[in-house]
Write a protein that binds this DNA or RNA. Sequence first.
DNA 1: AGTGGTACTCGGTACTACTTAGTACCAAGA
DNA 2: TCTTGGTACTAAGTAGTACCGAGTACCACT
Lengths: 108, 108
Amino acid sequence: MDGLTEMLKGTLEGCVLEIIGNEETYGYAITRRLNELGFTDVIEGTVYTILLRLEKNGLVQVTKRPSEVGPPRKFYALNDAGRQELATFWAKWDYLSSRINQLREGGR
Amino acid sequence: MDGLTEMLKGTLEGCVLEIIGNEETYGYAITRRLNELGFTDVIEGTVYTILLRLEKNGLVQVTKRPSEVGPPRKFYALNDAGRQELATFWAKWDYLSSRINQLREGGR
DNA sequence: AGTGGTACTCGGTACTACTTAGTACCAAGA
DNA sequence: TCTTGGTACTAAGTAGTACCGAGTACCACT
């Protein structure tokens, strides 16, 4: 499915937060995970910009660790602010999706 | 609920298409309808920019009619391209929301 | 030495919702 | 008459986010 770019705005960051919240992980793996989840067009550059933003906004704790198969990895874990942000994200998502579905069914 | 701005990107236009698809209507009324549907922070300026974009992209048929309580209104109705675009929007929405919910439940 | 997979950074672009200011019509009250 | 408030649209500019492109760099295998 392509042409999702605009619709992803505001939600992709939340998806990344959710993934990080499940398990401490790093950019390259997050991209792969998103791809296998059906976000097939999301590429690495996009994920890295989100990760840098999360770091800048103080929502994650970052740990650099060596890799056995390539350059060192930056592992990300949610801190308290990040968990709070994730909860807010889901609240917003629930709100939005319920309104949208209401609009769809409320034939006029 | 505030702070929905980013999340609305890509979906608000679809909502406007849906509203127009239900009934020929005009900008001011669309804004009111969105507000009562729960999109409380959406303001007129935003709706008008969407309507101008829809018109520019050839998705609507526009008819100007006098109003009894103010300046003339521009009524919008979907044409074939608009109905097609609306169907595409819902397909994208279904796809995205199913992936997001899958991510949410797929704890791991 | 070269290729391919892994891993991150950074400058710039495109698109969309929002902001702000402006124009303009009409009715009712001071 | 003037003002206020509700109705109705336009247009220029801002901010935020996903995407693009190029670059750097590590490692294993051939």
